[in-house]
């Protein structure tokens, strides 16, 4: 199996890698993992006025997991929480041409977005 060009590009030039201040009220943090492959992914969103202003990720895992989370941070920026919540793993699969054995990486990225949004809402008492 070989990685697609887009996966390799994200792997070599990850977008938005790093961390935001976890304690910041405007930051939602989602940490998710996949026990079957041992991958673990952290995705953080900085939200201001209902819009995702900034996003950061850090992933310990395979190239596909890194690319999926890197792509997710690109996509969520500028979106509202509801819009970001609608991002489906299948869109990530299509964009990165992930093979079937790597689909769980895209699921992880989708879960991470949702977990980060949930964390932000919890922090700010938004139902």
């Amino acid at each position: 199996m070989s990685y697609s060009k887009k996966v390799i590009d994200h792997y070599n030039n990850p977008r938005n890698m790093g961390s935001l201040d976890k304690a910041d009220k405007e930051v939602g943090t989602g940490v998710v993992g996949a026990p079957e492959c041992g991958d673990v992914m952290k995705l953080q969103l900085k939200i201001s006025g209902g819009i995702i202003e900034d996003a950061r990720f850090k992933t310990f895992g395979c190239g596909s997991a890194i690319a999926s989370s890197s792509l997710a941070t690109e996509w969520v920026k500028g979106k509202t929480l509801d819009e970001a919540f609608q991002i489906k793993n299948t869109e990530i699969v299509n964009e990165l041409s992930l093979p079937p054995v790597k689909i769980h990486c895209s699921v992880l990225a989708e879960d991470a977005i949702k977990a980060a949004i949930a964390d932000y809402k919890k922090k700010n008492d938004i139902a």
Partner: peptide, 13 residues
């Protein structure tokens, strides 16, 4: 099928 509690992932991260 594997799954684990979220708090475990935070520790592992």
């Amino acid at each position: 099928k594997t799954q684990a509690p979220a708090s475990l992932f935070e520790d592992i991260f």
